[in-house]
Design a protein around this nucleic acid. Sequence first.
DNA 1: ACAATACTTGACCATATAGTCAAAAAATAT
DNA 2: ATATTTTTTGACTATATGGTCAAGTATTGT
Lengths: 211, 211
Amino acid sequence: MARSQTTKKPTRIQREKTRSILEAALDVFSERGFRGSTLDMIAERASLSKPNILYYFDSKEAIHKALLAELLQTWLAPLHGIDEAGDPIEEICGYVAQKLKMAQEFPRESKLFANEVLQGAPHILGEIQGELKALTSEKARVVSEWIKAGKIAAVDPYHLFFSIWATTQHYADFDIQVRTVLGDEAEGANPFETAGPFLDNMYRKLLNPAS
Amino acid sequence: MARSQTTKKPTRIQREKTRSILEAALDVFSERGFRGSTLDMIAERASLSKPNILYYFDSKEAIHKALLAELLQTWLAPLHGIDEAGDPIEEICGYVAQKLKMAQEFPRESKLFANEVLQGAPHILGEIQGELKALTSEKARVVSEWIKAGKIAAVDPYHLFFSIWATTQHYADFDIQVRTVLGDEAEGANPFETAGPFLDNMYRKLLNPAS
DNA sequence: ACAATACTTGACCATATAGTCAAAAAATAT
DNA sequence: ATATTTTTTGACTATATGGTCAAGTATTGT
C-alpha cells in the first residue's frame, strides 16, 4: 500500500524521501507558483521518478498543502515572541528584525506564502481565519495596552503589523525588483543588510511616545 | 488576415473587442495568475469564442504582455509627480496617498504586477531595468537633495521607496489576509481608509527633519 | 447590388500533465 | 535462505489547454 495512506511509524527512507520531495517542491512552487509547477519538475529536482513522488504524496496538491502547513508555523513563530512584559519599542523592533531575517533566510517560504495569499489563499484560508487572526488579535491587544500606558505612540496596531509584514517580506517576494532598482552590478551592499537599519529607524520614530 | 497582424487603423469593433478581451483577461490573470488562467476563462468572461480572441491577439502571452505594458505606465505615473520644487514632506506623503489610492482603485493591476514580479518578472524585466530603474534613481536623487538641504531627515531614499511600495500595495495584493485579520464581519471600516492616516503619520514622523 | 474586406466559429490537432497500475527490485523480517 | 513488506518505475490513460483552419457570416466601400 502506498506510504501516503499508511499510519505506521515512518522508516528512514520514508523520512528522507518525503524531505527531498518537500525540499524540491518548495524550490519549484516558490519560483513558479502552484499552477506553473509540474510534478515532473519536482521529480527531476528531487532526483526521483514521478510515480515515486506519488507514492509518498497522494497528489500535487497534497505536497503543496504539506508545505503550507509547515510554513504557517514558521511564519507565525516570531509573532509569538512579542512579550507584553518586555520593553515595547525593543519588542516591536526585535520583531521587525526577526521578520526581516526570516525573509532573508527563507525567501522561498515567503514567496510561497505570497503566491498563496495573492490567489485568495485557497488552501490556507482556514488557518488564516483561525490561528493567524487569533494571534494577531492577541498581539494587537498587547500593543493597545502599551499605547494606553503611554509607552509607545498611538498607532493602529493592525496597520502596524500590516506595515511590518509588507516591508519585511517585500525584500524576499520582490527581490528581482529590489535588486534591479538598486543596481544588479554588485554594488556590494545586500538589500537585507541596508534595510535593517532603515526599518529599525522607521519603527523607532513611529513608536516613540515623546511626539 | 488576422487583425492582430495588421497595421491599418483599427475599426470601432476592433477597439471594442480588444478592450473587452483585455478587461476580461485582467480579471482572470489577476485572480489566478498567468499559468492558472486559460483562454477559455478569458473567452467566457469576455463573451467571445476562443478563436475569436486569438483573432485579436496572437497568443495568450500577447494578451498578458499588452496588459503589463499598460500597467507599468499606470504604476509609474505617481512617481513622475514628485516635484523637487515642492514641499518635501508633502510631496512624499502625497505620493504615498496616491499609491494607496491606486491600490484601492486598481487592485487587479496591482495583483497582476505582484504576480509578475514574484515569478521573477519574466515579461517585464526589461522595463524594470529601464524605465523603473531610471525613474526611481532620478527620484532618489531628489530625495537625497532634500536630505542634503536639511529639509527632511536622513533616510535611505531607495528603502524609502521600497517601503512605500510595499505598504501601499500590500492592501491590494494581500487583501484576503488584511480583511480576514481585521474581521470580515463588516466592522464597517474599509482597510484602505484606515490605512491612509496610519501611513501618512508614519511617513511624517520618519521624514520630520527635527529629530 | 455587388464585391471586398473584416469578423466569427465549430471542429480540429498537438502537446502537456496529473495520476494509475502492474510488475520488478530492494529492503526487512523470520 | 525464504517470505514478506516496502519501494521503484516504465508504460500507460484521461483530460485540459493553447492554438489552427476552413468555412461561414457580417460589415463596409463603391
